[in-house]
Amino acid sequence: MLSCKQASELLSQSLDRPLTRRERWALRLHLWICAACRRFGRQLMLIRLAVGKVVAETEQNENLRLSPEARLRMTRALESGQ
């Protein structure tokens, strides 16, 4: 039987790799009886969705621009790089 600690590690890894059949089965069994880990799994999914949203907001934030200095530096680099 998995401990909550092991179950939390598998839940995290399930976001990064396919679990083996044995791992999936052990995890499913643990989650069936453990509300805390079910909750934890949902939280990890929410964090992933929310991180995507935070990143998208930065990408769309028109107030974030290259500084004039950086722009000048790049212009020079492009001229000498050509």
Binding site: A56, T58, R65, L66, S67, M74, A77
Partner: peptide, 28 residues
């Protein structure tokens, strides 16, 4: 596209200097 590329890099690197470097290297 400079500002867009900068924001894209900044969102991932979270450091203005590293993000500027990434944009410059991309253009080069």
């Amino acid at each position: 596209h400079g500002d867009y590329l900068y924001r894209f890099a900044l969102a991932r690197l979270r450091d203005t200097h590293l993000a500027e470097d990434a944009v410059q290297e991309t253009l080069l």
